[in-house]
Simulated assay, not measured.
Amino acid sequence: MSENRPGPMQRVGYLLGRPLPESMRDWVARDVTGPGNLRRYLVRGLIPFVPIAVGLAFIPGPPLIRVLMILLLLIPLVYFQLALSPIYRRHLLRNNGLDPALADKVKIERISATAQDYRARYQLPDTDTDTDTGAEPTDRTPRER
């Protein structure tokens, strides 16, 4: 993997949706799929909320009301950020010329490792997932079947 990292202006463009040059595709893949990707995504989404929270903190009134106003906005923000994380990650990969399936790389590796452990524990033969499952071919229309 190359050690090309985007400069400050390239990083801002990347976060705003601009694709990075091809030489930085490895960095994009590590950024989107590497360790800490969810943490980075959440921080990036919460940064624009900070000025709003500061503004709400200065509204006159009891401190409890100010805190509750901030929480009223913060809780749905974090909820929707977590819910839309896979979509955003796929968008970043596609936008930078990478396969969107890379977003599920960690999940696929974990499932594969679990399947290998299961086969080893119960002495099942090691099979490919691409083998024929006995299903009918799908190249015919439903009427032809």
Rank of each mutant, 00 (worst) to 15 (best):
M1W: 09
E3L: 05
G7F: 06
G7I: 08
P8L: 10
M9L: 08
V12C: 00
V12N: 00
G13I: 01
G13W: 00
G13F: 01
Y14K: 09
L15Q: 03
L16W: 00
G17P: 00
P19Q: 00
L20V: 02
S23L: 04
D26T: 11
D26C: 09
W27Y: 11
A29P: 04
R30M: 09
D31E: 10
D31T: 12
G34F: 03
N37G: 14
L38M: 14
Y41A: 12
L42K: 12
R44A: 15
R44C: 15
G45P: 02
L46D: 03
I47V: 15
P48I: 07
I52C: 15
A53H: 14
L56P: 02
L56K: 10
F58H: 13
I59W: 13
G61N: 03
G61P: 06
L64I: 11
V67L: 13
L68C: 11
L68D: 04
M69R: 13
M69K: 11
I70K: 10
L71Y: 10
L71G: 09
L73D: 00
L74D: 03
I75Q: 03
I75F: 10
I75T: 07
P76T: 08
P76S: 12
P76E: 06
L77R: 09
L77Y: 07
Y79E: 00
Q81V: 11
S85A: 14
P86A: 05
P86V: 07
I87N: 07
I87S: 11
I87A: 14
I87W: 09
R89A: 09
R89D: 01
R90D: 01
H91F: 03
H91K: 12
H91V: 01
N95P: 07
G97I: 02
D99K: 06
P100N: 08
A101R: 13
L102P: 04
A103Q: 04
D104V: 06
R110F: 09
I111R: 15
A113T: 07
A113F: 05
A113L: 11
A115V: 08
Q116V: 13
Q116D: 11
D117K: 15
D117R: 15
R121I: 04
Q123A: 09
Q123R: 14
D126P: 12
D128W: 05
T129Y: 06
T129Q: 07
D130Q: 14
D130I: 04
T131L: 12
G134C: 09
E136G: 14
P137H: 07
T138H: 10
D139K: 13
D139F: 14
R140E: 02
P142W: 11
P142E: 01
R143I: 05
E144G: 13
